[in-house]
Design a protein around this nucleic acid. Structure first.
Lengths: 184, 184
DNA sequence: CGTCGAAGTCAACAGATGTTGGCCAACGAT
DNA sequence: ATCGTTGGCCAACATCTGTTGACTTCGACG
């Protein structure tokens, strides 16, 4: 018994996150994950039961919008952009979700939950307009997912080259408008 | 000899486009494409050589921005949005690219070519500012890809529910700003 | 020391996948 | 009618996939 079971379990999870983020659901094989973790593929099954369940564990995610409480209303756009960019770079979780959500229905469902369930209520609270919050949340999500796609997945050179401040300058007013402008 | 070779070739290509658009690169198997086309899998190989080459043929695409020539400068934003939405709905090509571009490096490369190679020159011509065109094109791409992702792939309910006019109202000013506003 | 349980390994399975080569069957020209 | 060409199909291949079960190692506790 070299390691405790909890240790190996988290080693596997870390390797899984990396592989899912880099390769997507289908190409991230259990064997490759196990190889990264320097562990027998059978252990992955022992601890997580199946590839689906391992993925579910790897895709746990919290956007942590509570960090945005107390921001002045006219600076919400810029604050949102900065927060999202940091979330993209903090861990592989968002990239896992985006890479897999496109071929895996379960991941797409989770994505809908996260953006509708975590973002919309926050927007409702911050703007005081619950009725339009779902649409605003969807527009903000679409813009920020598009940027994440261009910058971290498709690697569009101009977007990769931009600094965080550049991106905030471009995107801040857009998000601000989606959050607070009158409904068209 | 029931059909001519060109006929079956295009039948295969149509089935391939649908499968790639619906399932992504890995899950769209040659066998399933052949089954859709009611044809033996071996025929796919005979006509296209390999799965990679079949995919390359299925991912041919032209954004046809020439249709935007002659639009008044202050209406470019709305015109772009409408044009993109029609392109998303016209055929499966954009969905093929997005679904596969996320796991397949070749598709990602093609996506970069299309958006940098077709969109940026058009923007340079329409705005008369070649220097900032690549960045503007990238921002427009990010926003429109984000909307396509939300509406056609991830199926965010509020985005799915919106009409084309609703989307133009929300997105038009954003695109207009990305196209013509001073560089931040 | 001996035993028991948990951590780790090995080999194999059944199924699916891309790909190949050989074999039919139908058509047009001779 | 015959023959060659060409579209179509079948069976098989090697490989890879998720998953399973039996076996081995090793530490803790009696």
């Amino acid at each position: 018994m070299r390691r405790t079971s909890a240790e190996t379990k988290s080693i596997i999870l870390a390797a899984a996150r990396e592989r899912f983020a880099a390769d997507g659901y289908e190409r991230a094989t259990i064997r490759s994950i196990a190889a990264d973790a320097k562990i027998d593929p059978a252990m992955v099954m022992r601890y997580y039961g199946s590839k689906e369940k391992l993925f579910a564990a790897a895709a746990e995610f919290d956007l942590r919008f509570d960090a945005l409480a107390g921001v002045a209303p006219e600076q919400l756009g810029a604050a949102f952009v900065r927060h999202f960019l940091r979330q993209w770079e903090a861990g592989e979780s968002l990239q896992v979700l985006l890479r897999t959500g496109i071929t895996n229905d379960g991941a797409a469902e989770r994505m809908r939950e996260i953006f509708a369930g975590q973002l919309a209520p926050r927007i409702a609270a911050l703007t005081g307009d619950p009725a339009s919050a779902p649409v605003r949340a969807a527009m903000v999500s679409a813009q920020m997912l598009g940027i994440g796609l261009a910058r971290y997945i498709l690697l569009f050179p101009p977007v990769v080259a931009m600094s965080e401040d550049d991106l905030v300058s471009w995107l801040g007013p857009t998000i601000q408008r989606y959050l607070t402008a009158d409904r068209p």
